[in-house]
């Protein structure tokens, strides 16, 4: 489903953010990516979103080589991915319903379908009643759940989450992670970048650890650090 072969990425500033990453993720997997600040985790997510292009190496997602993708095919490719970020990135001038519906409008969905899909998504993340609220009226956890609903409403087969609980308290963090697990159980491949040691230890998923632009550890049913258990 996701394949990286010796991927390197140097920024224009000369910073070598990724220095030879080779990685294979199967369809339906749940993967944590952990590592020190600046180890290249967000860079990896951006490469998968084709926000950035690698300096060298190949990336294949859903069977498509991203290096060979034409610019006009990028939107179509991104529709197969869902993304959430640490800072939620909701539209502040639109309510919960509109924020989720926005994702559907962007991919030209008939209004009739939007009216059916959005409430379904909102009840999945447990926000069915708050559909009229504006982002500033919601807690961080609620905002992240809106973002999650927005990421999922177009039914992506891969969900990328870059520190989705970075701004949340432990209770909210656990709820979000549980949601991600539910989504994964429904068949979506989930990739979560996180610093939340406790949750990673608890969930016993595949954990990829990065350091200075390379993968130093990749274990199944693992904890945050090698000697966690």
């Amino acid at each position: 489903m996701i394949d990286l072969i010796n991927v390197k990425k140097a920024y224009d500033t000369g910073v070598q953010a990724l220095n030879g990453v080779t990685l294979h993720i199967e369809r339906g997997e749940f993967v944590f990516i952990v590592g020190d600040s600046g180890s290249g985790k967000s860079t990896l997510i951006k490469l998968l979103l084709k926000e950035l292009d690698p300096s060298s190496g190949a990336i294949k997602v859903n069977g498509v080589n991203l290096n060979k993708m034409k610019p006009r095919d990028i939107p179509k490719y991104r529709r197969k991915l869902g993304v959430v970020f640490q800072d939620f990135r909701l539209l502040k001038d639109r309510n919960v319903y509109e924020n989720v519906a926005f994702a559907q409008r962007v991919v030209i969905t008939p209004t009739k379908r939007i009216r059916k899909n959005v409430p379904k998504m909102l009840s999945l993340v447990g926000l069915a009643e708050k559909y009229k609220a504006y982002p500033k009226e919601l807690s961080g956890g609620e905002q992240q759940r809106v973002a999650l609903a927005r990421a999922l409403v177009n039914q992506p087969n891969i969900l990328l989450a870059d520190e989705p609980t970075g701004n949340l308290d432990p209770t909210n963090s656990k709820e979000i992670m549980r949601l991600l697990e539910t989504i994964n159980e429904r068949g979506t491949t989930v990739l979560v970048v996180t610093h939340n040691q406790e949750i990673v230890d608890e969930m016993k998923k595949r954990v990829i650890t990065m350091q200075k632009g390379v993968i130093i550890r990749d274990e199944r049913k693992a904890g945050y650090t090698q000697h966690a258990d």
Binding site: L49, E51, R72, P75, K76, Y77, R78, R79, L81, V83, R89, L91, F102, A103, V106, V107, R150, N154
Partner: peptide, 9 residues
């Protein structure tokens, strides 16, 4: 956000 969601140019 639009671009990340997959909005065409």
């Amino acid at each position: 956000i639009m671009k990340l969601i997959g909005a065409t140019n």
